[in-house]
Write a protein that binds this DNA or RNA. Sequence first.
DNA 1: GGTCATCCATACCTTCACGGTATCAATGCC
DNA 2: GGCATTGATACCGTGAAGGTATGGATGACC
Lengths: 299, 299
Amino acid sequence: MDDLEVRQLRYFVAVAEELHFGRAALRLGMAQPPLSRAIRELERRLGVRLLERTTRHVSLTPAGEVLLRDAKPALDAVAAAGRRARHAGRAEPGLRLAMKADYDGGLLPRILAAYRLEPAALPVELVLVGRGEQLPALREGRADVALLPVPLADDRGLDVEPLLTEPRLVALASTDPLADRPRLRVADLAGRTLPDGTPADRDGRPPTAVTAGPSPLAEAPPRRLDLAQIFNLIELGSIVWFPPASVARRHPRPGVVYRTVEDLGPITLALAWPQDSRSPAVAALVRTATTVAATAARP
Amino acid sequence: MDDLEVRQLRYFVAVAEELHFGRAALRLGMAQPPLSRAIRELERRLGVRLLERTTRHVSLTPAGEVLLRDAKPALDAVAAAGRRARHAGRAEPGLRLAMKADYDGGLLPRILAAYRLEPAALPVELVLVGRGEQLPALREGRADVALLPVPLADDRGLDVEPLLTEPRLVALASTDPLADRPRLRVADLAGRTLPDGTPADRDGRPPTAVTAGPSPLAEAPPRRLDLAQIFNLIELGSIVWFPPASVARRHPRPGVVYRTVEDLGPITLALAWPQDSRSPAVAALVRTATTVAATAARP
DNA sequence: GGTCATCCATACCTTCACGGTATCAATGCC
DNA sequence: GGCATTGATACCGTGAAGGTATGGATGACC
C-alpha cells in the first residue's frame, strides 16, 4: 500500500509541468477526468496535497515541488533500467556511443581503429544526437558512453574523462566586412545571431549553457538547424557560428570563411559514462580514447 | 507500450535474488502463478529473456543481470521520491538525521545546540538505525542527512563531509589475560569473535566493510546485537569489540576494560546527504557540524 | 531404471483499477 | 449578471492482476 507507480509519477510530472489538467491529459493522450482521479489517488497514497487547484488556477504545493524535482530522476532511472536490459539482451551486444555528428575533435576514426584492437572491444554503434542531447541519451539508457563538451551542468552519477581541448573559430560570410580582418575579437561579433536564434553574448556562448532539456512547452523552442541550413544562413550573412577548429577544418566551403577569435574560450571534449557501468568494453574505450588523444596532442 | 512499472521491477528483483519463483512469491506475499505471468509479461515488453528457467533451476541471463543491477537504484529513486514528498508535506517539516545510536563522536549535543541558533535551522529528528543502515535510510528518503563512518563503499549521488577522526579501542573482559597488558596489538586479538559473529582479522575489520545490504536470504545473516548483549558477551569473554574512543568513554562498565590497540586504524565520522539536496537546512547543519568538529579538534 | 517430490507453466475465474463519456459546479472575465 | 473555461463527480465497460486447481517436466533417491 506504500509503493508509487511509474504511471502515477508520469501523470504527476505532466500536470506539474503544464499546471493545467486539460493540457496535461492531452500531452498524455488520455481524457481529463481519469487524470484528475489519478492525481487524487496519488495524493491519497502519499497523504500529502501536491497541487493547489481551483477551476481557474493550478499551482504546486511545497510537497509537489519536492516530488517534481525527485520524480524526474526516478523516471529516468526506470527508463534507463529498461533500455539497458533491452540492449543487453540483443544477440550481438554493441557499445553505443552518443555524440553530436562531427563533434569528435577529429579523433573518432583513430579512436575507433585503436579500440578495435582491444581484446574487450565490442562493435561500436554511433548514436548521433542533437546538441545537448548526449546526456539525456546516457541517462535514459539509449547509449553506453557519450562524447560531449565539458564542463557539464550536471554530472551527477557520471564519470567523466576529458580528451582534448581545441580552439573555436568563427564562421562568417566571405562577403562580411569582418572577413577582411585576419583576427577578430568576440566584441566585434556581439549582437550577431547564432544558429539557435539567440544573439551572441560576449562569451561566445559556452556550448553547454542551454541543456535544460525539453522545457514545459516553452514559448520559444530554440531553433535546431542542420549543417546545410547553417552554412546557407552564414553565406547569406544572417548568422555567425563558432565551431571548434576540427569541425571547421572538416567543412571548407566557398562563400564561408573561418577566422580565429582571439579571446574566444576553447572547448573541451570529454567522454562520460554512468558511474555504475562495470562494462569492460566501456573501460577499454575510455582507455583507448585517452591514449589516442594524448598522442594526438603532441604533434 | 514502452514503460516499465515499479511493480514489475519489484517482482523481477525478488525472483532474480531468490532464483526461485515459489520463494519469491512468498516474499512478495502473493501466489506463484501470477508472479510467473508477471515476469513473462515483463520479458515480453522488453523483448528480452531475463531468466533461464527449467522446473529444477532458475538462473539469470546476461540481460537479467543488467536489469537486476539497474532495477535496484531505480526502485530506490522511486521510493525516495515518495518518501521525500510525504515528508515535505508534513505541517512541521523537520530535518531527519540518520545515525547509529552513540556513534556521534560525542559531538552531537554541541552540534545540535549550535545548529539551533542558525536562522535556517529546522527541528532535528533523529533517525536511529542499525549498523550500516544509514546509507539505505538516506537513499530511500527516510532521512535528509546521515552521520556515518567513511570511506563509503558507494558514495554515488552523495556529498560527504568528514567531521572528525578518532581512535578505536578494544573492549575486553576484565578477566581476560590480555587485560593486564596496558597496550595491545591487533595480532594479539586475531581469531577472537566480533559482535557480528565473524572472527577478527588483522585489520580489526573496517567498520564499513559489511555494508552489502540485506543479502538475498544469505545463509548466515550477521548477528545484530544491542549494547546490553554486547557488554554481556564481552564480560563473559565470548567476544571482543572495537568501539571508537568516544563510544567507550560513554560506556564505562565494571567487568569490561578498554585498552588501546597500537596498530588499530582510526575511524572517521562524516556527514552525508543527497547531492541534489538544495535544502538550506541541510547546508546549515553541515556548516555548523564542521565548525563544531573543527573547534572540538583543538582542545 | 522406476517412482516420487519439486517446481514452473497453464487454464480458468473473480475482482477492481483504469479509462472513457456525460455532466455538474465553481471561478474569473467582460 | 451572463458566459466561457476548467476541474470534479457520476456512471459504465474493459482488461489487467491476483487467486485456485492442475498439468507436466525434471532431478533425486531407492
